[in-house]
Amino acid sequence: MSEQTGTWWIWRVFWILLIVTAVEVILGIIKPAVLIDNSFLGTTLLNLIFIILTIIKAAYIVMEFMHLGQEVKGLKLSILLPAVVLIPYLMFILLTEGHYIFGTL
């Protein structure tokens, strides 16, 4: 898409990032009780929403601003696979262990 003419797609991503951030901040300030009192996967619904919105923002930055979406498949995979496989794995073992130690303190 480097042949893409115009700058409309840049401003489209800008508005998406801005609106998602604004939603995060507003949710962070009002903290709706229904999202805090209900938990899923060991954390509150509000935190899960924050994490999902963050991943959406990250995807737009990497795929559009960094043009990874337009690279060949092999490059895409060699960039994304280490991050997508290793980071959740590290998160899983460290958070599980941290929670376990908390239980024994």
Partner: peptide
């Protein structure tokens, strides 16, 4: 992740 570990540990 280290931050998360400590945060869970001292929740």
């Amino acid at each position: 992740c280290a931050y998360g570990f400590m945060r869970f540990k001292y929740a």
